[in-house]
Nucleic acid binder design. Sequence first.
DNA 1: TATCCGGTTTCCAGCGCTGTAAACGCTGCG
DNA 2: CGCAGCGTTTACAGCGCTGGAAACCGGATA
Lengths: 331, 331
Amino acid sequence: MARLAGVSAKTVSNVVNDYVHVRPATRLKVQDAIELLGYRPNVVARNLKNGRSGVIALAVPELDAPYFAELAHHVVQAAMERGWTVLVDETGQIQDGAVRARERSVVAGIREHLIDGVILNPLALDDADVERYGSVPLVLLGERLGSRLADHVAIDNEAAAAAATRHLVGTGRRRIAVVGAQPPPFGHSARLRLRGYRDALVEAGIRYDPALVVPVLDWRRQPGHDAVATLLALPEPPDAVFCFNDLLALGVLRGLADASLRVPEDVAVVGFDDIEESRFSVPSLTTVSPDKRAIARHAVEHLARRLEPGTWTPEEVRVGWTLEVRGSTGG
Amino acid sequence: MARLAGVSAKTVSNVVNDYVHVRPATRLKVQDAIELLGYRPNVVARNLKNGRSGVIALAVPELDAPYFAELAHHVVQAAMERGWTVLVDETGQIQDGAVRARERSVVAGIREHLIDGVILNPLALDDADVERYGSVPLVLLGERLGSRLADHVAIDNEAAAAAATRHLVGTGRRRIAVVGAQPPPFGHSARLRLRGYRDALVEAGIRYDPALVVPVLDWRRQPGHDAVATLLALPEPPDAVFCFNDLLALGVLRGLADASLRVPEDVAVVGFDDIEESRFSVPSLTTVSPDKRAIARHAVEHLARRLEPGTWTPEEVRVGWTLEVRGSTGG
DNA sequence: TATCCGGTTTCCAGCGCTGTAAACGCTGCG
DNA sequence: CGCAGCGTTTACAGCGCTGGAAACCGGATA
């Protein structure tokens, strides 16, 4: 390459990198040679030199869960604006015993030195894991952890869940069930949402009835669907269901339809996540809508800040949310 | 690192790579040092040496479209089994003028030398682009192109569309509309599906009525929803709708519900893709179900084959599909 | 004309790893 | 006792690139 242009490799490098002191004639010569040979600089070698790859990783439990797919979309977009490429990793579902191991390998950097940083939505990881295995700049999504080694981006789950519950109370519901509770060590989000729900009940002077709390590990449509049977078998079935994510809620909608119950007349349903699907379900779903774009933007931004030289202190970022009132609660 | 263990870097390399001729004692010494230092081999440097990165790229139009999200999920899984990591790129929607440019950059290798190969689901790319810009092993999803530089993995769109149409005819429908037609140069899939539809009509002795063909560029829920108004405004509205993907169909379901039409009693609906959502819609959606797992597996497998030394000839892979009959056609 | 000077280019080294060839050290045979 | 032969380890070079320093070059200055 350099030979064809009759210059040294360094000069080629200078041209490619827009170094100022290159005589126009030389630059042209080099550019011609580049064109002629279809030469492309080898990014890998460049990375080896400067220790940066321009690739960040996004690790989510499952790409085929709409919430994560939508989030991934926004992260890819935000990263593109910075000239970064996103490498996507799946860490697996909550029931899968290997989740934690995979999450550890993610905070350890996946393919070491190949990625500049990681955005991780953890399910099973704990603080100790991060301290122990962490070796790349890390941004955690969700409120699970308190690590001092990572930034955190999340919404206020408790407040959002309370708002959703309050909304149901406001439409006159009294027996409000919950679908999606999870036992420790999993489900930090689930616990926060449950707490918000209880707080709102107390606030409204409604007794908290554990029978109305349906535990579900796997937050997908089918388990949501199945939860309906459990709830309808109660001596006093609920008049509303607050689901800890939209997929559960969509399963519940379907289950209620199968049981010939009308939504929202007989039972109101609220979800969490505001995936696109929820705007088009029949009936459309009232749901908590986290600002996903903001989550993605902040995550990428904090990763960027972390990569810049200088001191860095971990930050907690609280992102906004809204309650989208739609057909499933009579909106 | 090597110093701590008191051996040369090469010996460390040998240990890490499980080279046979390393004395057990030496191996232990090195492993201790590795453990102690938390040493991780630098993949980038290794790649520089052997020209492989173990990373493949998957490029799809939009990650937040469920079909692509599910496909991505399967590709990530299939790649993991081979020890590969997947880098995900979004090329954008069909209306976006930049799609073609982005697809070109994908076949050119995205970050040159960083990825070993590409699996691309093209929208706007043409053969000439591949010939001209192609510079990495490439597997194309869908039947758009005939390039001799890439493997192709696809289902028989025409046959599947014909089967879907035949099914509607079989349930007694006569005015079968189509939602999702696309004009050239876009929508090769759309054209194949339209052809299958026409063939099936002809076969059943039903006249092809262009008024029943609704063109839609953007195959998502909202445009599907909007198409309902167009169809209901016809002098003779349809008694069935064949949508070219599930999102359109879900939008149509919603639109019909809004118009107080019953599905399937008044209008039957069929989709294409069999995304998970379609199993839980109300009513559940009859749809063409391409074997996504097989698509992913074949794509990864062919990329692998391509990377092996030896001669390679492009292959056309036809993957299976089924028609899932559900509630929206009275199943 | 000699010197200086700033712009331009090349030289050199090294990022961390591994293939190759050569060196080393031990065993066992002649 | 010497050396072949084998198993083990090291030295060296180079993958393609870039930072830094040195070298080069032509014109301005003394």
